[in-house]
Write a protein that binds this DNA or RNA. Structure first.
Lengths: 252, 252
DNA sequence: GGCGGGCATTGATCCAGGTCAAGAAGCCGA
DNA sequence: TCGGCTTCTTGACCTGGATCAATGCCCGCC
């Protein structure tokens, strides 16, 4: 059976104009001609292997990255040698927006599976954005989304129990995957239990136990990386204990 | 003794050109003539009383706000009626940047003391930013700073103990106050213990106990709202257990 | 000036989740 | 196919900080 993850050369070269992610990414709201201008500054890379780094903390800031296929995590090294995971990034999401202020990356990013990205030189993007108001607007929107994503995460870490955190994480993943045309109820976790635990501010053992318990309670099925969400309603209830958000989604 | 917090009419009317905060705020990097253009779209308000709201969650998004004097907190209502504090905002800091994506505010903001703000209509700011590249750049920078601030907070909430959190909070406050020309070692907390606890993901009682203990250990003196930091070195040590950040500051 | 109500402190108790330790189950590469 | 990784799961135990409860303290208001 052919592996659906294998990316053909054609796909690597796909331009923004033809990219299925354009409604989630920078081209949103741009006229056809303007997308072409954007396309000219975007650099598309060869596939990136699982574990390969996109950039390291402290690297000088030159590009922002849009995930095209696969997934990434961003993280910092803890003093004790461990990793603190800051986020997971799916196709159409931008990485590196936190580096503009200091002109250096404030975290590291590495691929969780074989992935591909679009590299966007930030100086050129800025120049283009002054010429294309709707591009500027979209950059503002995406950065704003990054901020609300983070504040939602703060709410989650600030005062939610372990099972609420895991349920919120799974539903967030489900929703984002569905937006990208994947199944909302069945998917593979590209990140390790350790990554999930770090992201949610929990111990690995706790995450493992929660998966087991949620499976026993019929909320989901889990087999290694594979997850099937069985009872979305009860998972939702777990999340809705969360702060009242006036219809806004918790997590991006 | 005259109250130094009382704001005279002159100060309310101060233009960006003369504002002492311009190096921290939107005007940074702008030419004199451009600052004047920015100044023309900024609306300055009468003082805002302690407890008064700047906006509520769900309000349509029209303006971003720059704190001129005083301080604010942003927060959301929890399901149980409590408040989850998302951030504290000092003079020169912007509020409302998380609302661009959804066109509505994702949190509420209220004054912690008598304060004043500059209101900036976002549509006009966007228009001006297309004309003034360095203004656009500064907006990007400030939004980027907001993102790194939040990710630093995630690190703090993700895996730091209660005393590390409080120490980090106090030093962050100290540094920001110093940037603004106030004392780095003696200041008044404009927020309640409850606000601090919520922000740091702790219980009020824990914060109270920590203040007491840190005072006993000679790290600081605390009397109600007033704090004097006595041993910056040891406070620093507490924070440096934090993830390795390549010289970047934890918290904004 | 005294009283009432929120805010802060302190003490006592409890438990969610961390830590430690020991397998089990995949996942290579030889 | 085996042996040595790493990752994951499960169990036993422990503790940091939450929770509950009581008291003190300040500040605004009549």
């Amino acid at each position: 059976m052919p592996n659906p993850r294998v990316v053909s050369l054609d796909k690597i070269k796909v331009a923004c104009q033809n990219c299925t992610l354009s409604a989630l990414c920078l081209p949103l709201g741009l006229k056809e001609a303007d997308v072409e201008k954007l396309d000219q500054i975007v650099k598309r890379s060869r596939p990136i292997q699982r574990g390969e780094a996109l950039f390291h903390i402290g690297d000088p800031f030159q590009n922002i990255y849009a995930v095209k296929t696969g997934s990434f995590k961003t993280f910092v090294q803890s003093a004790d040698g461990g990793e603190q995971v800051l986020g997971f990034h799916l196709p159409g999401e931008l990485i590196g927006l936190d580096a503009i202020l200091d002109n250096q990356h404030g975290c590291s990013a590495k691929a969780l599976e074989t992935s591909s990205i679009c590299k966007i030189p930030f100086l050129q993007l800025e120049t283009l954005a002054t010429q294309l108001p709707s591009l500027q607007h979209q950059v503002f929107r995406l950065m704003s989304g990054e901020i609300s994503k983070d504040t939602n995460m703060l709410m989650l870490l600030g005062n939610r129990s372990a099972d609420e955190r895991l349920a919120t994480f799974l539903l967030s993943l489900s929703r984002r995957l569905a937006q990208r045309g994947f199944s909302a109820t069945e998917f593979n976790l590209s990140m390790s239990r350790h990554d999930i635990a770090s992201y949610l501010g929990l111990a690995v053992e706790t995450v493992s136990r929660l998966f087991t318990r949620m499976q026993q309670e019929g909320l989901l099925q889990v087999d290694r990386k594979f997850v099937r969400l069985l009872d979305m309603d009860r998972l939702d209830e777990l999340c809705e204990k969360n702060p009242h958000c006036h219809g806004r989604q918790l997590l991006p």
